[in-house]
Design a protein around this nucleic acid. Sequence first.
DNA 1: GGTGTCGTTATCATC
DNA 2: GATGATCCACGACACC
Length: 467
Amino acid sequence: MAPPKLTDYERERLENIRRNNEMMAKLKVHSKVSELSNRPKVVTKSYSVKSEKKPKTETPVVIRRSLRTRGIPPDSKGLDLDATSDSNLLIRNSPQKSDSLVQTLGPIPMKDAYRGADSDRSFIESLVDVSNKDFSEEKLNGSVKKRKIECSLKLESMSLDPENIARIVPGRITQMKFFPSNDRKMVVAGNKFGDIGFWNVGENDVFLYHPHQAPISGILVQPHCLSKIYTSCYDGLVRLMDVEKEIFDMVYNSDNCIYALSQPKNEANCLYFAEGSGGLTVWDNRIGKCSSNLDLHETRINTIDFNPQSSQIVATSSSDGTACTWDLRCIGESKLTALRTFARKRSVQSAYFSPSGCSLATTSMDNTIGIYSGVHLEDETSVYHDNQTGRWISTFRAIWGWDDSYLFVGNMKRGVDVVSTVQRATVMTLQSPHISAIPCRFDAHSSEVGMLAGATSGGQVYIWTSS
DNA sequence: GGTGTCGTTATCATC
DNA sequence: GATGATCCACGACACC
């Protein structure tokens, strides 16, 4: 088959991509964190390219738009799996679709997605090893053991060791998670370009992959099999990174953006993702199909969170200005109605259940953090918090710590505000001279009390620890 | 009510 | 230290 004819514009962009890839290789994305952290000043300076000319453009952002949003009637021919003829793919700043730049549908070998200069073999083998080890121990101890956390967090003891700072991906981090492992302190982060980076906290190596073409909207490390990691993306795809098979498999492909990804505890068979304008899609892995497609909100759903005590109860937050709780047992009814609706004055960026499942915390663009408690979450408290992040910083989302006492949320002065649910106020701010940007996305380690990861729009991850 | 435009915000590489 | 590029979040506003 003859190669597609390219316009000057497309040739220029391909050349940019090639230069970009060369730069990433020379940068040694598989880099030494020590090089970053040994600097006398803040670590953000460390990603600069020494004697390298940076390409002007990054990998193009492929945006999917639904037929509905483009005012086109539904396609009667169904999904066209030939990427080169997929008219739903638009390249930003490009007036026409480009055959060479559209995303790959189907599985991508990890070796093709890898962006590091050195081999990722050690990373792959260690992840497979630790996954098997964790799984065997779990089987020995009786499966699905719920790990009880003795929570005795002293906020004052939380500190930021410069060794625990790394730039994991280029550009803005949109999602970041700890591996749900008791002994492994591994962080995985996704950025706006569709990259996924891995960092073993404290170690030197960072491993970067490029499985998606647009902002990463969800990362799910399977708790009972750490070598399987689901990712969702604005490009409309859900992928499964299977480290044993060494591929990024394609699970789901949509014309709509996917804004969030979630899964109930101990329920590996189903995936829930926020699709398009207010939709919640339920994907059943056993049959490889959607089992439900629910229209829950007027506009995009930003987060999906399951109640830790009841996997049938889920909370959604939406840009329509509400957070809602839902009972999925009623999913068969003609129209699912919310158990409760929590109305805010502006869009709601997150709604998370507390570790006990007894409270719900929302973060909204109306500059509040809402805390709901009581048997039916009827008791409402609003704590003022400046959530005006603008377009360059990922929106703030207050997360719970290791019990129902505290919430952690970034602030515009490069600190981490700690909100006490008892005092109903911000009681402390974690700060450090080592922080060079605003930490906007957070995750609390599942078993290590006091280990909190914060991610920035510059690709850095900061790990606070408690002594 | 729907659509389009614009202002706001921070980070980082380059000069 | 100053400057320019970034660009898919959101809300205000104008216009139809």
